[in-house]
Amino acid sequence: MANGKPNEPQDESKRRFLKYAGTAVGGLVVGGVVGGLIGANSKAGNEASPAPSPSGSTPAAPSDRDFNQALMYFNQDQFQTAEAAAERIFPADDLGPGAKELGVAFFIDHQMASAYGMNARDYMSPPFHPGEAYQGYQLTFKRQELMALGLDALNEYSQDKFKSKFAKLTPENQDAVLTAFETNEVHLKGVPAGTFFNMLRALTIEGVYADPLYGGNKNMGGWKMRSYPGNQMSYFDVIEKEGLVKLEPLSLHDHLTS
């Protein structure tokens, strides 16, 4: 890397970023831009997947205990229900881990406690009218309310049908319950079953594949299964290659240098 070149950006965070990006720094920084990132055409740009901690000062090594795995919104019962349901949506198999091992239920819990769970950036002003399907979501429920009511409904329906809580059912019976929700055959406490199921499905996929910083995709296990390399700074030198280019995945955590 040509880090010794003159006229490096003076801003410290910018400098670290460029170092991470594996690109050489040229002479000119213009218009508030990270200008002169020449890596593209120089030898220095060849390191498309730089070492995770270029500064040599690595964030603390992961211990066996993941302190992020605790609850922000769910109670334990809701957590277990969500975990069991997510595992059926994205089960463990020969290809690799399922939703449970990937921490998807923690992801969902954390999302429900976030601005997203509270619809902070959605238009939630009245009046509310049902409207046509093609006019989109028109319910008064916030996502976290719909989630809590939906999980309760999963258990209630499981009790009615199979005399047990959802998490204790056989996988086959869990699938039958989820299918009944998906196809809107369930009518409990005014919970829109299909809408709840679609939200749970979408959150499960997000929890499998979002950056591990959000609590799911543990150890980038979701990405590894499909050879997705995560947060890479440049594919300049490999994008023309035939076939699937396999790279060790990087997360945003790898991007944070001290």
Binding site: A21, T23, G35, L37, G39, A40, S234, Y235, F236, I239
Partner: peptide, 12 residues
């Protein structure tokens, strides 16, 4: 206008 910018890295 004298503005310099860097080449795309195809990061996706």
């Amino acid at each position: 206008d004298g503005i310099e910018r860097a080449a795309c890295q195809y990061c996706g």
